[in-house]
Design a protein around this nucleic acid. Structure first.
Length: 596
DNA sequence: CTAGGGTTAG
């Protein structure tokens, strides 16, 4: 086939087309995944976790830069020279675009195909669906699903697997699961799509469940499977499960490639085992920026700031180019250690030397770093001079600093901004209440409490988990009146409390929300979820086991003190991963050196 | 000959 020659300048041009024109919905196909023409709506997602998303493009515009890919594959080809395109070339171009991450172009080519009389065959749907997934366009995905079925490719394993992946990426795991269950045949890749899909949707427990299901079904997990499962383990802090996967990799001689290695490092780092993470890191032959990033932020969250900074300079020495995520790790490390000078310096070098544009995340790190260290003016200066709108996280960082340093007035300013952005987030009211509680201003504390009651705003309950064997046990902060079945845990806590009191512990009741009688406050504190998990761990494991507890919120002052004493009196190593970082307790001290 | 992969502040 001979194609016409054309001028490169001419084809760099904008081709706008609206979505409805490009891909009209098919009202003749009443499938569950379809657009409903009578109600003008899409099927209501079956998962409660599926939040509504705004689509990135209402009307998409294609800027064609033909020199970036194959000149034959410019989209103008389709509008001007379509008589020269046969089905094979068209399919090749389309796959090419997907491969080059030019997802809008893939979709564009797909939409133009029918216009110029080329029918898709089953081999292009995987590529189209991959692009649609990348663009997060569930409407397009659903429409293409219709097309797949209509053309008789409904049981094609490649297209179906791509559909499972697409539904997961578009936050419709329920649909993905349904489709997966209806597939006439599945292979390891299909299972992987589902596992990584659940991980992508932060449904980590289900990801691990599917992994078990996969093995029960007799499919062989491969490298990709382990990457997805390890990521789930990392997020959950499920160390034993993660170790099991590591063993599986060794036993079955799976390759420790850069994906698997990075996932392993991240898993160990997020379970608090920095030594193991390091071992994997040094065993890896090929590394990339992801590998360095998980190592650096691993050090950072485990309170090894110096190690993080050393790793960073080594990374640069070995000619890896740091990216935005690298600097997030570096700044986070400085923040947790109170390394103000170093933090300022790296923030500057990120902009000047590495030419990276700070993101809001970097600014919030700086506000936290400066504010926590007491440089409240400088922290405010960062907020004033950054060229973006402060987000709730920034205000919370400032508020946190105000609480530490007792700047109630500035704190009130921060909370005003915060509540303007997030009036319904219970966490914010708790922070405000804590700010007043620090001043023992119970009148104001009561007002906040009353406001919460009136508006029906609730605090997210604290929840801690501990893994014993391969089972993860969860504990929710307890209502005193309803012990809820863990009698032995409560009994042990009472015993522990008496022992600790002998050692000089007294409950730090300052932070408790209400203006209760002192004794009642102590009761509230003793049932914090992390204490329940700790007592359970002490009961169920031998004394040489390090207890690893994962909490959904930040550990409170009182629990922190409590854990330090336990680590001394019971000679237990305890690791707590709270919402922000690790606390490694041993011999009565914490790795955070009480700076948190 | 098509499908599935790791990191991100507080």
């Amino acid at each position: 086939m001979v194609l016409p020659r054309f001028n490169h300048e001419e084809i760099i041009e904008t081709v706008p087309t609206t979505l409805n024109e490009a891909l009209p919905m098919d009202p003749t196909l009443p499938l569950p995944y379809c657009f409903n023409p009578t109600t003008h709506s899409y099927r209501v997602p079956s998962d409660s976790n599926d939040s509504a998303r705004t689509y990135p493009y209402d009307e998409f515009t294609l800027k064609l830069h033909s020199h970036e890919s194959n000149s034959r594959s410019s989209a103008l080809l389709f509008t001007q020279f379509h008589e020269f395109i046969d089905s094979e070339l068209c399919h090749t171009i389309l796959r090419c675009y997907t491969h080059l991450n030019k997802h809008l172009l893939t979709v564009f080519v797909y939409t133009q195909m029918s216009k110029i009389g080329i029918l898709p065959d089953s081999s292009i749907f995987p590529a189209v669906l991959k692009s649609v997934a990348q663009l997060c366009r569930r409407d397009l995905g659903q429409s293409i699903h219709c097309c797949v079925i209509k053309m008789g490719f409904g049981s094609d394993i490649y297209s179906s697997t791509a559909l499972v992946h697409m539904y997961c990426t578009c936050l419709l795991c329920g649909d993905a699961r349904q489709l997966f269950d209806e597939m006439p045949e599945r292979n390891a890749v299909s299972w992987n799509a589902l596992i990584t899909g659940y991980t992508h949707n932060r449904r980590f427990r289900e990801a691990i469940d599917v992994f078990r299901e996969m093995q029960a079904a007799g499919a062989e997990p491969g490298e990709v499977t382990t990457v997805g499962v390890l990521s789930a383990c990392a997020h959950l802090g499920a160390l034993n499960q993660g170790k099991w996967v590591h063993d599986y990799i060794t036993r079955n001689r799976l390759r420790l490639n850069v994906f698997v290695g990075t996932a392993l490092i991240d898993m160990y780092a997020k379970c608090g085992l920095v030594d193991e993470a390091e071992k994997v890191f040094w065993a890896m032959r090929v590394k990339n920026v992801y590998t360095w990033n998980v190592l650096i932020s691993g050090y950072a969250m485990n309170g090894q700031g110096e190690a993080a900074l050393q790793a960073f300079s080594r990374m640069v020495m070995e000619n890896f180019r740091p990216d935005e995520v690298t600097f997030l790790g570096v700044l986070c490390a400085c923040c947790h250690q109170g390394l103000v000078k170093e933090g300022r310096w790296h923030f500057l070098s990120m902009k000047e030397e590495f030419r990276l544009q700070p993101m809001i995340e970097h600014y919030s790190c700086m506000v936290d770093l400066l504010g926590r260290a007491g440089f409240l003016d400088e922290a405010q200066e960062v907020i004033r001079t950054m060229n973006m709108k402060p987000d709730p996280i920034i205000w919370r960082a400032l508020l946190g600093a105000c609480r530490i340093h007792g700047h109630t007035q500035l704190g009130e300013f921060a909370i005003r901004n915060l509540l303007e952005l997030e009036p319904k987030n219970g966490e914010n009211y708790v922070l405000l209440s804590n700010l007043y509680a620090r001043d023992r201003n119970w009148v104001k504390v009561g007002q906040v409490r009353e406001m919460m009651n009136r508006t029906g705003i609730h605090k997210v309950p604290g929840c801690s988990s501990i893994e014993i064997g391969s089972v993860v046990y969860e504990f929710v902060v307890s209502d005193i009146t309803e012990p809820g079945g863990y009698e032995e845990v409560y009994k042990l806590l009472a015993v522990i409390k008496r022992q600790l009191e002998v050692a000089g512990y007294s409950a730090d009741t300052n932070i408790v929300l209400y203006d209760l009688e002192e004794e009642e406050k102590e009761q509230t504190l003793i049932y914090h979820s992390e204490k329940l998990a700790l007592a359970f761990g002490l009961l169920k494991t031998s004394s040489d086991t390090t207890l690893i507890i994962v909490k959904n919120l930040r550990i409170c002052q009182d629990c922190h003190q409590f854990f330090k004493l336990i680590s001394m009196i019971y000679r237990r190593k305890i690791t707590v991963r709270d919402r922000h970082r690790f606390h490694h307790f041993s011999g009565g001290v914490c790795s955070c050196k009480d700076y948190w």
